[in-house]
Design a protein around this nucleic acid. Structure first.
Lengths: 155, 155
DNA sequence: TTACATGCAAACCCTTTGCAATCGT
DNA sequence: ACGATTGCAAAGGGTTTGCATGTAA
């Protein structure tokens, strides 16, 4: 809950909306409030964001959350992930340093990591495939050895 | 259409089904026939596999294709991919040498590549995350510079 | 024979869309 | 006031499920 970061995010969003000629609605900013109220490395899906906001008294619809998250992704304030599960997960991106993810086969816990060698791969493959690489997705799946993995196991 | 490979795949599938005490139905083997009739590096989704088989006169249902593909993935005869699109894509896996994928942002063309450094990353991260890495997914997205990219662009 | 597999269609789930009502600008 | 945005509910699209029928063993 870093007030400074949230304010910065809102300023960026305002600029973006102005540039696009889009409206600055309270609903849109409330999504920033909620996304950035989460721990920096937490991933949340639309349904949980919706429930969380409804529980707090916001009157926002799923449709608006989907719409707003798209905008946030477009202007670099959110990152969307699609792991093996069917739901998309979002995380805040303002303080984002690029990282990749490890997902436990059992408990589905998501952990982040960073390894510079991915950049070497991108550079080398960009050249050999004659493509301008714009982004990538790297997910390692494994059985994590943390002691509460089994307990967290999902259906 | 390498008859030898298809036969080998069927033998592996037979063994697998026997071991599981599952039935060796013609529908199941027909999916191997179709999947392995494709070019080795081609990716196909369930709907197209279904249509292709129906057009050839097979009477198979989507449900059976889904079911069979799951079995093929389990016994290592097929690999399932979930790129950014919503449909899952499958490719044959018998002659599979691990490779990763490049997907063009524009034309969605999928190309394969292989870079040994991914193994270094898996090994290093497995250690530092204290996890037994079982698999990974690496997709590079980029704008490919092949001349017909634009023409292939999808809606 | 008999339990597993199949085909079909309905159900599911996440996401998108259509539309009347609302609300920035 | 005008038109973009909203909330709601319905529609979409891929996948899964339920069930009566068929069939491998």
């Amino acid at each position: 809950m870093d007030k400074h970061i949230i304010d910065k995010a809102k300023r960026i969003f305002e600029d973006y909306l102005s540039r696009q000629g889009s409206r600055k609605t309270p609903e849109r900013f409330s999504v920033i409030d909620e996304l950035y109220a989460l721990p920096q490395d937490e991933h949340i899906d639309v349904e949980n964001l919706f429930l969380k906001m409804r529980n707090k008294g916001y009157t926002i619809s799923r449709a608006t959350i989907y719409n707003t998250l798209d905008l946030l992704v477009e202007c670099g304030l959110a990152v969307k992930h699609q792991f093996k599960d069917k739901v998309a997960l979002y995380e805040q991106a303002l303080t984002y340093k690029h990282h990749d993810h490890h997902v436990c086969n059992q408990c589905r816990k998501i952990r982040e990591f960073s390894d510079a060698r991915i950049n070497d791969i991108k550079e080398a493959m960009g050249k050999s495939l004659d493509s301008k690489i714009t982004s990538h997705s790297l997910v390692l799946y494994g059985d994590c050895v943390i002691e509460d993995c089994e307990n967290l196991k999902l259906g």
